[in-house]
């Protein structure tokens, strides 16, 4: 288990996803669960993707969206649980331009083949892959991932079986309790 805060939240998430991407080359039991009420694309620090490899082209990633698209190209199952843009518009005081950005991002991920779920109850923030779980207070948004906010959380690698499986079970339950996003849940 590792302590995670605003300084390494994005690092852990990025590495978890990159590792899953590479694992997909030899193991089909790969998946990504992303749970976050607010869900926006963000730019990855220009120095992180520095990645030396003779087979994997990870260095060309500029944004979180690039990384998810790359993973979908390897047919990795990606499930996202978040607020629907319609719910945000009707029930929250979030600025319209933020809702529109979330709407745009969700539509793109849908086009890449990600499975999108929504629930008004979602408040947890969780990233799960076959290699580990990252959870805490940070949403998947630029302000959370780029150190503008104070956040805290924990990272459990898969080797911490009990903790890992508990979180995995939790994520599975929440996806079961949510609804797949429908066209009417998006902005017109």
């Amino acid at each position: 288990m590792s302590h995670v805060d605003e300084k390494n939240f994005a690092i852990v998430q990025f590495d978890l996803l990159v590792q899953e991407y590479m694992k997909s080359s030899h193991n089909k039991e790969v998946f990504v669960y992303l749970i976050s009420p607010y869900f926006l694309n963000y730019r990855i620090s220009t120095t992180w993707p520095s990645f030396t490899s003779n087979f994997y082209g990870v260095s060309d990633i500029d944004t979180f969206e690039d990384l998810l698209r790359l993973m979908r190209q390897n047919e990795i199952s990606i499930k996202v649980l978040t607020y629907s843009p319609k719910y945000m518009k009707e029930n929250t005081s979030i600025k319209k331009r933020h809702i529109m950005r979330q709407d745009d991002f969700i539509k793109k991920l849908y086009d890449y083949g990600c499975q999108i779920f929504s629930s008004p109850k979602v408040h947890s923030k969780l990233t799960v892959t076959s290699q580990g779980v990252l959870f805490g207070s940070a949403n998947i948004t630029p302000s959370a991932m780029n150190y503008d906010q104070w956040n805290i959380g924990q990272y459990f690698p898969r080797s911490m079986k009990k903790d890992y499986e508990e979180k995995l079970l939790y994520a599975n339950e929440k996806f079961s309790d949510s609804n797949p996003l429908k066209p009417e849940d998006l902005l017109a």
Binding site: D15, M22, W48, F51, T52, F55, Y155
Partner: peptide
């Protein structure tokens, strides 16, 4: 992944 060593964090950087 993400472990702190002094003031820095471990990061995956090649395979």
């Amino acid at each position: 992944i993400g472990k702190r060593i002094d003031s820095k964090f471990i990061k995956l950087s090649g395979k």
